[in-house]
Computed example of a mutant assay.
Amino acid sequence: MNKIRKQQIIIIGAVILLIGFLFTRDIKGLVKEKEETPAATAAPQPVAAQIDLQSVSATAKNLISNATAKEITSLEDAYKSASGAEKLKLGKQLAQKWDDLEQSAPSALYLEQVAQNESSLNNWVLAGERLLKAFDNTQDSLVKPAMLQKANLAFEKAISIDSASADAKTGLGITIVNGMGAPMQGIAMLMDVVKKDPKNFKANMNLGTFALKSGQFDKAVTRFENIIKDIKATPDAYFYLGTAYENLGKNQEAIDAYQHSKKLAANPTLSNFIDKKIAELKK
């Protein structure tokens, strides 16, 4: 196995792990093999309209208990017949219920409807963030691009309300880098957020992950070290720092970072993975 291929496997493995155990969607789904990079600049297909809430909800109900599915169906029936403030209340309740069940797709679509019925900066940002979470969490070839397109539209609507919103600009930048435009345009947007707000956690994390994706491991190390030191020491920041160090061949630094990630995450599955990785690095 050549060095480049090995680096790709390390990066992809790290992202898959974090998708499962660390992130709630801030920045999942960001790392792909380098051969796939040109596809990121292709014009996205208009698939968002093909996704409807009813079918997404029906699919999600197959993944939960019958009792919980019946409870949600009852809430959905009430939602369909409601109007005004009651409909907004039930929409938010359903979004939270689905999110608690770790079913981000129906949760996101309910928040999208809430924002459509009550257009505000906060509602569109919340919808966009949940739609990004759904994009990150699904491997469905139809749902995934639809969620990204919907997230892009939600953040555009948020920016139309407040063009200075760091959350809206960060979210929009993430969607652009992931395929809703030229990647450098999205990175420039995130850089602008960080320039104005150097301690913006989400924007910095995404810039670090994009550096990792593009093989700029030295830049990734600097970004994640600064995040840990000056913003927030999180399990994912330490894990990505370890991944960057591992790709640079700095095994002891990687081990130290992975151990910090393990300690902060306190996740048995992650701990087992890291223990195996550390054992390999010590060989």
Rank of each mutant, 00 (worst) to 15 (best):
M1P: 02
M1S: 03
N2D: 10
K3C: 03
R5V: 08
R5H: 05
R5K: 11
Q7W: 12
I11C: 09
I11W: 01
I12S: 00
A14P: 02
A14Y: 03
L18C: 14
I19F: 12
G20H: 11
T24G: 03
D26C: 06
D26M: 07
I27Y: 13
I27Q: 12
I27G: 14
L30G: 03
L30V: 01
K32T: 03
T37W: 15
T37M: 06
P38N: 01
A39F: 13
A40M: 14
A40C: 06
A42K: 14
A42Y: 12
A42S: 11
P44I: 08
I51Q: 01
L53G: 01
Q54R: 11
S55Y: 10
V56A: 10
T59K: 13
T59E: 10
T59H: 08
K61L: 08
N62E: 15
I64L: 01
I64Q: 05
N66H: 06
N66P: 05
A67L: 10
T73I: 12
T73D: 15
S74C: 00
Y79V: 02
K80Q: 13
K80M: 08
S83V: 02
G84I: 10
G84H: 05
A85I: 10
E86V: 06
G91V: 09
K92F: 10
Q93K: 15
L94S: 12
Q96V: 12
W98N: 00
D100T: 02
D100W: 03
L101D: 07
E102G: 06
P106C: 04
Y110H: 05
L111N: 04
E112H: 06
Q113G: 04
V114P: 02
V114K: 09
A115D: 05
A115L: 09
Q116S: 06
E118A: 13
S120H: 00
N122Y: 03
W124G: 04
V125D: 00
V125L: 01
E129N: 13
K133E: 14
F135N: 08
F135I: 07
T138F: 01
P145I: 02
M147L: 08
L148D: 08
L148T: 09
Q149S: 15
L153S: 13
F155E: 07
K157I: 07
K157A: 02
A158I: 07
A158Y: 01
I159F: 04
I159H: 01
I161R: 01
A164R: 07
D167R: 13
G171R: 05
I174V: 15
N178I: 02
N178R: 14
N178S: 07
A182V: 14
G186Y: 12
K195M: 10
K196M: 06
K196H: 14
P198R: 09
F201I: 12
A203K: 06
M205T: 11
K213H: 11
K213R: 11
F217E: 07
F217M: 07
D218C: 05
A220Q: 05
V221L: 07
T222F: 08
I227Q: 10
I227E: 05
I227W: 06
I228P: 10
I228R: 08
I231D: 08
P235W: 04
L241G: 12
L241E: 14
T243I: 03
A244Y: 09
D256S: 14
D256V: 14
Y258F: 15
Q259P: 06
H260I: 00
P268V: 00
P268G: 07
T269C: 04
S271K: 04
K277P: 01
K277F: 02
I278H: 01
A279I: 04
K282T: 11
